[in-house]
């Protein structure tokens, strides 16, 4: 059983909702990332999504676009992410780490090399935003044989037939995109999300995690009541942006945001 499945099994046993923070690796500079990951775990993260910076993040709003730019200004690339995860694993062998990003950096590295090195570094799952399951027939088996979970997105526009296909390919958890838009977009409609999760539950036993639009304890708690996990990205990356000139201030700021969400979810 990989770390993601173990983590969800244990959360289920405790009746808890997964809290899944996202940060872009290398933002504001590569030397801070591992420290941030530990800080996130200390303040209640169950799984960490580590963003792979990309020059053309088409599905992201301005907040994560700028995070990518800061990370790339320091030359952050996939091989550095592997080093970061390896470093993180020195002291944390339990918290699952999921890489999230776009296909081109992986394509350029080569699928085989990517899958082997990611797994060897201690990565547990991979979510490639611009790779739907239909295009995953080459990388999918390589990830599977390396023990990496292939995590896919489901959107409000996903038809039931497509959802069935995605559920058939998905591993680890399903990432439900709560709204039509880019990351960091406007507020989400919890009732609408609830209605859309319902048919998915009939299609799969995979945990359903909801992202996009979760900004504070209140929204986290509202979504937490209907989902198995909540993903928070831009709200954290905003804190990193604010502290970019004084990096020492960032970890406490991240902890404050995440702790509030943890308390709200557990209340």
């Amino acid at each position: 059983m990989n770390r993601i499945d173990k983590r969800f099994a244990s959360l289920k046993a405790q009746g808890k909702t997964a809290l899944i923070p996202y940060i872009t690796a290398g933002d504001p500079a590569p030397e801070h990332t591992v420290g941030f990951m530990h800080a996130l775990v200390e303040s209640g993260a169950d799984i960490i999504e580590l963003g792979v910076p990309f020059s053309d993040p088409m599905a992201d709003g301005p907040v994560i676009q700028k995070a990518c730019e800061r990370a790339l200004a320091h030359g952050t690339r996939l091989t550095h992410l592997f080093e970061m995860v390896q470093d993180f694993r020195q002291t944390d062998t339990k918290t699952p780490v999921v890489l999230m990003g776009y296909l081109n950096p992986i394509e350029r590295m080569g699928y085989q090399r990517f899958a082997e090195q990611a797994a060897a570094a201690g990565v547990d799952g991979v979510l490639i935003v611009d790779m739907p399951p239909e295009e995953a027939d080459e990388i999918g088996p390589l990830m599977k044989s390396s023990g990496l979970a292939a995590i896919f997105l489901v959107a409000p526009t996903t038809s039931e037939a497509r959802a069935a296909t995605i559920c058939g390919h998905g591993e680890g958890y399903l990432y439900y995109v709560s709204l039509k838009g880019v990351t960091g977009a406007a507020t989400l409609d919890v009732d609408a999300v609830d209605r859309q999760l319902e048919p998915l539950r009939r299609l799969t036993d995979l945990p359903l995690c909801v992202g996009f639009g979760i900004r504070d304890g209140a929204t986290a708690a509202a979504v937490g009541r209907i989902a198995d996990g909540v993903v928070v990205g831009s709200a954290l990356v905003n804190r990193i942006a604010e502290g970019a000139d004084s990096p020492a201030s960032i970890a406490p700021a991240l902890k404050a945001v995440l702790s509030e969400m943890r308390q709200a979810l557990d209340a």
Binding site: D130, P132, L153, A155, T157, R162, G181
Partner: peptide, 14 residues
């Protein structure tokens, strides 16, 4: 070629 897009657009392209 192919259709490498985020899931939200898959429906519109189909």
């Amino acid at each position: 070629g192919g259709r490498f897009v985020s899931e939200t657009l898959s429906f519109a392209l189909e």
